[in-house]
Structures are given as structure tokens and as C-alpha cells.
Design a protein around this nucleic acid. Sequence first.
DNA 1: CTGCCTGCAAACTCTTTGCACGAAT
DNA 2: ATTCGTGCAAAGAGTTTGCAGGCAG
Lengths: 155, 155
Amino acid sequence: MSIPAARETFRKFLVQKGIRVTKQRLTIFDAAFAQPEHFTAEQLLDIVRASVEGKVSRATVYRTLPIMTESALLREVDIGSGEKFYRPNREGSRSQVAQVVCVDCDRIFEISAPFMEWYGSTVSSKLNLTPISQRLQVSAHCNVFRETGTCPRRG
Amino acid sequence: MSIPAARETFRKFLVQKGIRVTKQRLTIFDAAFAQPEHFTAEQLLDIVRASVEGKVSRATVYRTLPIMTESALLREVDIGSGEKFYRPNREGSRSQVAQVVCVDCDRIFEISAPFMEWYGSTVSSKLNLTPISQRLQVSAHCNVFRETGTCPRRG
DNA sequence: CTGCCTGCAAACTCTTTGCACGAAT
DNA sequence: ATTCGTGCAAAGAGTTTGCAGGCAG
């Protein structure tokens, strides 16, 4: 999905939700959706501030992230590292993805893992539960880093 | 594994690591290993303090938890909720377990999921990575709670 | 006796919140 | 004109850390 199209979708989402369409929200959305990789709230704040379109506060960024996540144009990724990561959901896909986190280069790879949904349902039904979501994450070392002392993803 | 046996194992672990065997560390270990369910650092602090064997500070509990985790007598469970959970690893098992978290009763169920290890290896090798660990977590609603408004695990 | 360990409190990180002002509808 | 959104700074939760005194080896 292109950025202008995504912005339009986001705008419609806001209107339909009865949430006001403000300059800050659109600015933050643009910056977030333009990111090629995962980013944190603080990184997004820096990016937004660097792109200077009027001031945007930390609080507003933090308040906007859940809205964008709810619109499904952004996906929240929690790898259990104290801070949350976000990433644009360009395909509009709701498909299940697993994360592979390289502890050497701090990079997060995402891999489709459709069986997660099946697993969640199977396991939940045994406990008389209704699954909401599931997440699968793998931590790993970079082989190249171990051999050469430098991670190719790092520089 | 019984508590005295576990304590002895922990003591040996400390000695072998060159870490001093203090009264606080053993007290904290005993309290931790006696827990039937998951617990947080703060809960453990309360438990230790209630069991009154001399004072134990918050700092020492926080400093001891990683040591116990490294000994593998305790397992760390991060469900991405801001605080970490811990649970005794009585079976000494290193087997892979998935967590099912009920968002109604906040209970954490654990289920053996050996395929996680296979999955981690498979996915990692494709990215030229060496897997360290993997985790699989399912969030779910309690069916009984939804129907009756009360979760049986809750009271 | 030496150096790691403890307890205390302050620091820290990430995120949330109360309040007065400002902007969207 | 309302009412919701914003920015600021302070609060909050969970965890970590610097330092002076204490105990294990």
C-alpha cells in the first residue's frame, strides 16, 4: 500500500471512529508508515521531529501509536526487551508472523507462520479458552558475527 | 526435585561459579523454589519477608533472580506484560514449553511444545543464524468467564 | 583480612497522566 | 462554541546501581 493511500485509509479510520483528524496524528502516521523497518516510540519521535512539520510531543506520539495499531496499518511487535517495536503493515495482512531476533545486530526478521493460529486454537480449546492471539519468537546469534566479529547487518 | 535437594544443587552451583553462599541467597532460593505457581520479583520479596528469616532487601531479590535463573532451577517467563514472571523448574527439564495466558484470570498455563525447538532451528538456519531460544505464547479468554461473568480460577 | 555481598535510596527507562491552552468539528 | 487533542512536566511501574558498612572464604 502506498503512503498516500495509507494516509487516506488512516484518515477514514479516524473519522469512522469519531477521533479527530489532527495535523499531529497525520504527521506521526506518515513518519511511521514510511519506515522500512521496526522502530520504537522514541525513534519515531526523533524521526517526526527531524521531519519538522510543527512540533510534536512525546506524549502525542505515545498516544497515537495505539490508535495506529488499532487501525491495523501498524503492527506492534513485543520481543520482551522493555520497549515495544512497531512496523508498518503494508500488505494489510492479518496473517500470523513469527519473529527471529538476532541478538548480535538487534535486527528483527519476520517470517510467516500460519500454523501458529492452528496451534493457538488447539491448545486453547483443551483449556476451555478462546484464543485471542499468539506469538512465536526465536532469539539467535549471527553466524557471520561469530566468525568474523562483525555483523554484516551492522556495518 | 525436593526442596532440600534443590537447595543443595543451588549451593553447589554457587560454589562452582565462585559466587558466595550467603544466607540471603539461600533464603530467597527456598522461597522461590517452594512456589507452586508463577510469581513476580515483588511477590517473591513479599513472600521472603513474610517468612522472616532476617531482612532481605528488594535489591538482593532482584540480584538473586538472574543467578537462580542461570542455575536452571528457576525459569524466567516473559509474557510481555511489563513485569517478568518466574517459576521453579522442578523437573529439571530443559524441554520447550509454550505459555497460554488467560487474560481474564491472569493465569499462566504451560504446555509442552517440543516442535518449537525444531522450528527455531529450521528458521534460523535459513537466515544463517544459530538459535538460542524460542518462545511461543497464546493469549486467550476464559469461556466460563464470558458466560457467567466469573472466572472459576479466580473465585 | 580481603573482597564480594547487602541494604538503602536514588537513578533509570519506558510509558502514562493531570492540567491549562489550543485547535477541530 | 464545544469538546477533544496537545504539550509540558511530573508521576508511575519495574528494575538497576552507587556507596558505605558487613559477612563469607
